[in-house]
Design a protein around this nucleic acid. Structure first.
Length: 557
RNA sequence: GCGCCCGUAGCUCAGUUGGAUAGAGCAGCGGAUUUCUAAUCCGCCGGUCGCGUGUUCGAAUCACGCCGGGCGCACCA
């Protein structure tokens, strides 16, 4: 299925020989779509934009698609879709399992690298954005037909293990470890860190670990297992899955070769005792081997790219991490481009910090990072309170199910609905609000749709042979549904999940306007069947869209 | 000191890459319910897009300079 934007663009570009730049109209009174491309083309050619637009308009043959296009302002072309065309497009969307979203061509292999928590530490709010944004983008890419590989690059190797092993040997409390492994591991780290006299011992244990000492290796493995188990509980709750979890330790054996290669081909050189890669325009180098012979995470990142390239042959690797690592990735990417032949596109999808309502980085009152596990538990608890007050008659297990879907969905949506590049202020009240641009609002719209079907005793309705729009809100809803495909492509092109949330929020709004004005079940045939079909399609788009954000829907709430 | 990001309504934020009269939500005010879940809908109020100069048919968007905030800058990740 071809979207309205594509149809308009092709026809315009056929006559303009330049990008049509078709966008939804800034003001719906002007039409449904506007083409901005004539202005740019006219400027480039030194022509009068208005005259060029008039000329193009006379040549367009879009009589089946829209009303006669109008030239407006300095040279915009405005288009208003014909209801008959909208109806026809909607009907083909209804009969398409993919909701009119044609798979990307060509399909790419894309690696998404996100989440990446450090072992032996609890996941905290700092990990939530990477995990949620990365998961959503991967889902969108997969839906668009790309071959997607998600990889959780765990911080499971490094100097902290010297301390942890000393703590493990000297201070371990097995009962506490049983109860809450990560809290206990954090305590062990703090115990050792607070004792400067143990520093030498920690260094020695680290060296033993790195040399493959079986006892230390076993402790490390145990710590890794405990951590991964704890992470999995959180990923399970969030509904996030990874195709691979290849942590830093996996690449450790490859690091000497990476350094050797880069030295051999002259990309790296020794400076102040460290092996460095200097980029032309950067004052600071990427250090790939420290003067003491150790390796930093830059070397690991290089080895990781190489491994991925050799094993998965990706077109793109997308790193979803916070904006502070920008310089680091710039250096790594620059090195890769000089090092590997035909390197993949490397993208750093950066995001801002989560702030408290005081505008400072979000922390507990005592100044610690807020644990993700506790945050999610609180979200569910707050959602349960609301669900109980709204629907006290529902059985408790159902209210708990609702609370889980609403609570987790609210946390995710609050994060996804903002432009990821800016910092965002975390607020329970806003994310769980019953109205406004929130997950519960969208989930509620879906529930209302399901309720209609429940009341009608139907599970699905067939595609109607005709669609008529009696009320303006029906046509408005229909036109918005047709934009789903374009939105998904835009989301992936700029890695901006907030465009999908904005679309779905508008969709829910247009649906509720329709719901308010257009009775469904009480309408006579064939209106009843047609409206049921519109409800069904809206529900499918809402459910699919939310699913691409990693957010679940409910039958009742 | 150098670099990156940001500054839009009282608050939280959009703004599709230079397009038309800058949009939402919240808060505030006013309305709507014999109808499919009111966790709803409709209306009103609210702006020197940090400031200035420039680029051009056109700037919240691009360039330069200020002001203010955040972050990063050789051996932590």
């Amino acid at each position: 299925m071809v979207s309205p934007v594509e149809i308009l663009s092709r026809e315009i570009e056929h006559h303009l020989n330049a990008p049509a730049l078709v966008r939804p109209c800034t003001d719906p009174r002007l039409g449904d779509f506007q083409a901005n491309g004539v202005l740019a083309a006219a400027k480039q050619r030194g022509q009068n934009p208005r005259a060029l637009a008039e000329q193009i308009v006379t040549r367009l043959s879009l009589a089946d698609v829209c009303e006669p296009p109008e030239v407006a302002g300095p040279g915009f072309i405005n288009f208003r879709l014909k209801p008959s065309f909208v109806a026809q497009q909607l009907r083909s969307m209804m009969s398409d399992e993919r909701l009119g979203v044609a798979p990307a061509s060509p399909a790419e292999t894309i690696v998404f690298d996100f989440s990446g928590p450090n072992v032996a530490k609890q996941m905290h709010v700092g990990h939530i954005r990477s995990t949620i944004i990365g998961d959503a983008l991967a889902r969108v890419a997969r839906y668009l037909g790309h071959r997607v590989i998600t990889d959780n690059h765990l911080g499971d190797w490094g100097t902290q293990f010297g301390m942890l092993i000393v703590g493990w040997n000297r201070f371990r409390d097995d009962a506490a470890l049983q109860r809450d492994p990560l809290s206990e591991l954090e305590r062990l780290y703090r115990e050792v860190n607070a004792r400067p006299e143990l520093r030498e011992e920690a260094r020695a244990e680290l060296v033993k670990l790195q040399r493959g000492d079986p006892a230390n290796r076993a402790i490390w493995q145990h710590i890794l297992d405990l951590s991964r188990h704890a992470f999995d509980e959180i990923y399970e709750k969030l509904g996030v899955r990874f195709d691979f979890t290849l942590g830093e330790s996996f690449y450790n054996p490859m690091l000497p070769d990476v350094v050797k290669e880069l030295l051999d081909c002259g990309i790296a050189r020794v400076s102040d005792g460290a092996v460095c890669v200097f980029a032309a325009d950067q004052p600071t180098p990427l250090i790939i081997q420290k003067s003491d012979g150790g390796y930093g995470y830059g070397t690991t990142d290089l080895a990781t790219v190489k491994y991925r390239v050799e094993n998965w042959r990706p077109h793109r690797i997308v790193y979803v991490t916070d904006a502070r690592q920008q310089l680091h990735f710039k250096l790594v990417f620059a090195t890769v481009r000089r090092w590997l032949p035909n390197p993949p596109h490397l993208e750093h999808v950066a995001f801002g910090s989560i702030l408290g309502e005081d505008g400072k980085p979000l922390r507990t009152r005592s100044g610690e990072n807020i644990k993700l596990r506790e945050l999610l538990a609180e979200a569910e608890e707050r959602a349960l309170t609301i669900a109980t007050s709204k629907n006290p008659h529902l059985p408790e297990d159902q209210r708990r199910e609702i609370a889980q879907v609403i609570g987790i969905g609210a946390v995710k949506y609050a994060d996804l609905c903002q432009n990821r590049t800016t910092d965002y202020v975390f607020s329970w009240d806003k994310m769980l609000a019953l109205d406004g641009n929130t997950a519960p609002y969208l989930q509620y719209a879906y529930v209302r749709i399901r309720s209609i079907f429940r009341k009608a005793g139907l599970s699905v309705v067939p595609v109607p042979s005709q669609l008529e729009f009696q009320d303006a809100s029906e046509l408005d809803l229909g036109k918005h549904l047709l934009r789903f495909r374009d939105v998904l492509y835009d989301v992936l092109a700029d890695y901006k999940p907030n465009w999908l949330t904005a679309y779905l929020y508008e969709l829910a709004g247009k649906f509720t306007a329709f719901y308010d004005r257009c009775p469904v079940l009480a309408s006579p045939e064939p209106t009843r069947q047609q409206r049921l079909a519109m409800c069904q399609l809206t529900g499918n788009v809402l459910r699919t869209g939310l699913d691409l954000l990693g957010i679940r829907v409910l039958e009742q709430m």
